[in-house]
Amino acid sequence: MKKRISLCLLVFAVLTAYAQTDTTYKPPVNDGTFGNTVFPANPISRWSVGLFGGVDKNHHVIDVLYASDMKYTDMGGKTAGVSASWHAKGWLSLRADVAFVQKNYRMDRDNRYLPFVYTESVNNYLSVPVTAVVSMGRTFRVCGFFGGYAGYWLSGHRSGQSLSVTYLTTHSEEDTYFDADYTFDEVRDNRFDAGLVFGAAMRCALFKKLDISAEMRWYYGLTDIQKNYMVNLNPRYNTTRTMQVGLSYWF
């Protein structure tokens, strides 16, 4: 994971360096028609707002220690949100989003006595990432961005099968199922979420004031999803990658 982060940071840094040294930048021509539209001729000090949505996949980071038959696997989810950007320079903008992000994961027991036991955890977060975006290009712009986010764990849902006392008496899986909204434990659950966010995007100007984007981003959580409630607390983090498309309107 750290290699991928480093690679993205490298792309971001190179873009930054390139953009800052791009002495060939000239305001593009823009006649405002579809297919012949480029990004605003003078983007400096302008605002844009946008909508985006897409899918994500979350990786739950946990060292299971000696509980080696607990297998955590990534699970997909959805993301959507709104964004606002302030374009400081032709190559640099600041962006803030309000994003709904699902950080889901699944735990299976790789145990011959418990082959049916699993839990799917669906976790809904509200995240506010703030990023610095460097970009270059005219009709198509390549963007790299990096920043931080803060968020809140809104709600959760758990479903799956668990070993129950009933199973011990019947050996039937009938009463092992559960499917219910998650009740937060105030002692354990850390609902505050913060971390790094970074990624890359392709933006395409559709009309004079509208552009469309395709984006990959990573939310790299730096806050343990658990409060520091016990001495030998084994940390748990989420790393979520999203693929999303969006529309932005320029003011």
Binding site: L163, V165, T166, D175
Partner: peptide, 22 residues
């Protein structure tokens, strides 16, 4: 209902499942 543990954390519980004797 009954539940057991689902991890090594003190409060890592499994979900509640029905405790029914057939």
């Amino acid at each position: 209902y009954s539940r057991t543990k689902e991890g090594l954390g003190r409060l890592d519980y499994s979900a509640w499942t029905p405790f029914i004797i057939r």
